[in-house]
Structure formats: C-alpha cells, structure tokens
C-alpha cells in the first residue's frame, strides 16, 4: 500500500510499459469435495468423482483420492492438473524413500514432506488443498490437512473443496455430538440413541462463567439468542471440545473416537447432502478406509454393515506394514 502512493511513473508511460498483454492464467478450479475423519484405530478418507469446470461436467469419474502406502491415503482437491502432478511427485519421493530405507515412510513424515513440497512452490503454488489420512506409528488413526502453500496440522476431521462450507460445520457439530452419544452409549445403552442433540448440548456446554441455557428466561427471543450463542461456541472448537466439560462422573472427551459405522454414515450423509446443495459435487463417492493392523474388520466386512448400493474391495498391500486399506464405492446423484 504505502510502497506506491501513486503508480510508478513508468506505468503511465505507454511506451515504457509496452503493449497491453493479456496474461495467461495457469490455474483452473475443477470443483469437487474431499473429506477425512480419524478414528481411534482407523482413518477414513473420501472424495467425490465429479470433475467440472464452470457449469460443465468434464467427467463423472475422475479419481482424487490416492493410496500412497499401506498406512497413508492422500486426497487432493482444487486444480486437477496440479493435483495429479503433485500426487505423482509425492509417490516418486515415497518410492525413493523405500529404496533408501527399505521401509515405507511413516505418516507424520509424509505429512512433513508434503509441507516442504508445497512450500517449495510458494511462489508458483500447486493450487491444491490436500488432506492426508492414515495410521500413525503408534497405531492411532490420523488426519492431516494442508493449505496450498503447506501450512498443516493434525486434526480429528476435515472437509475441503467446493462444499467445505457445507460439510465442515456439519462435522464440527455431528462428530462431536456423535462422540457424546458414543460415550453415552457405553454408560446408558438403553437411552443413548434417543437423546436429541439439542438437549444433550443443553446439559453439557458450560463456559467459564455461564451455564447454557440460562435459567432466568425461556421466551422464544432469548432462546433464539442463546441458541445462537451456544452454536457459536459449539462450532469449530467442538471437535476439540473446547468450552465443554463432560457430565459429572463421565469419561473425558477424546476427539476422533467414533466407531467406524458411525463415521461411514457421516461420510455418506455429508456427500449425499453436499450433492443436493452444491452443483459441483456428485456422480460418485470413493471412501478409503485404512485400518490398524490386527484390528477387527467385522464392522466393515460383516453381514449388513454396508448399506445397499455400496461396493467394497480390499486394496492389495504395498509393503509389509500390516495395515489394511479398503475402498468403498457408492453412486451419488448425477444432476
């Protein structure tokens, strides 16, 4: 701003500035949405398969979630050409690592490598939002999310892409409430599935100095105001249960602790809903499930675990890590 109060003199001089040039724009936005949720000993990474530009659907099947190693899956979203080429480079670096060290790169190392690769292009960025999911060396399910220039953090769940603004708030709300239900179910199995989320929140959200809802007024106006206030508290921080305390005597909240069946349900609901409300989302859904070694697969492969219309296949092992990766496919609406 202060650098040039006015444009430098040369900018006014047509001869010095040269002819007007229409710069080539090397970027495009190809729509779509990706999503990943971490569990205690598994991780789920999903993406839709539509690739679009503007109002045109380029193809109804273009993959944007990629298995990297036995314990890592990468989802890319944004400019498809950058995404494809970035994944190609990541896979090449992982192959070199395998040759050098005779083992697969651990998840947290892949995450740091992706950061350096993205930041290496800080001044001509890959226009790609990456979400990395998988199993850490300690066996826990993990999700790392990145911005296009490499800022990253480990999280319990993350949505990115065209419908990020639709899906992320839903997960901030549902994942945390789901966790509450999950914990409740261990203690009160008979009532857990009927506890409405609002009443649950009413009893559990406690700020430093106030209890929600306030006891003094129950007019609709105040209910509205306090519902808003409770909601604003309940949004982003709720994954990490900030400003919340469990019920007296209850177990502490631990983010990323949902059962697999609940997570798969949330993923499918997220994408079917995003398909309804966002024109760039639809056609097909691919969900990668990475499981810790030795973990039971009954809650994925067991009879009746998957809803009708879903197909599942196990992806072959790339190394000898022992983790298992499954690919669940499902159709989404095409309109």
């Amino acid at each position: 701003m202060a650098l040039y109060a006015e444009h430098p003199a040369s900018a006014h001089d047509a001869h010095a500035a040269g002819p007007t040039q229409h710069a080539f724009n090397p970027y495009s936005d190809n729509g779509g949405t990706i999503l990943a949720i971490a569990g205690k000993d598994f991780s789920v990474i999903a993406g839709d398969t539509r690739q679009s530009e503007g109002y045109s659907i380029q193809t109804r099947y273009a993959r944007k979630v990629w298995q990297l190693t036995d314990n890592a899956v990468l989802a890319t979203n944004g400019f498809a050409a950058d995404g494809k080429n970035f994944v190609k480079r990541v896979k090449q670096r992982l192959e070199w690592y395998q040759h050098a060290h005779h083992k697969q790169m651990p998840l947290r190392a892949i995450a740091r490598m992706i950061q350096t690769m993205l930041y290496g292009r800080r001044f001509f960025p890959y226009y790609v939002y990456n979400i990395l999911g998988g199993i850490e060396e300690d066996g826990s399910g993990a999700v790392y999310s990145f911005d296009p220039v490499g800022s990253y953090e480990r999280e319990a769940c993350r949505a990115a892409g065209a419908a990020q603004s639709l899906v992320q708030p839903f997960l901030d709300n549902q994942v945390s409430v789901g966790i509450l239900l999950h914990f409740s179910s261990h203690r009160h199995p008979s009532i857990c599935s009927f506890v409405p989320s609002a009443s649950l929140r009413k009893h559990t959200i406690v700020t430093n100095d106030r209890q929600f809802p306030p006891r003094h007024d129950n007019s609709t106006r105040y209910l509205g105001v306090f519902a808003m206030e409770a909601l604003s508290l309940a949004l982003t921080p709720q994954i990490y249960f900030k400003n919340q305390v469990p019920e007296p005597g209850a177990a502490p909240f631990i983010p990323g602790n949902l059962p697999l069946s609940t997570v798969l349900g949330l993923v499918v609901d997220s994408f079917t809903s995003a398909t309804e409300r966002h024109i760039e989302v639809g056609d097909g859904l691919e969900v990668f499930v990475v499981m810790n070694k030795g973990r039971t697969t009954d809650d994925l492969l067991g009879e009746g675990q998957l809803a009708e219309g879903m197909e599942i296949e196990e992806l072959g092992a790339l190394g000898d890590g022992g983790e298992r990766t499954f690919l669940v496919k499902r159709a989404l609406k095409r309109d």
Partner: peptide
C-alpha cells in the same frame, strides 16, 4: 482422453 493447454486431463 482429453488434455488441454492447462495440462488438465480426463477420460469419459
């Protein structure tokens, strides 16, 4: 397959 000046690729 399709490819264009941006390097965007897809098949259908």
């Amino acid at each position: 397959g399709y490819v264009d000046l941006l390097g965007t690729t897809y098949s259908a």
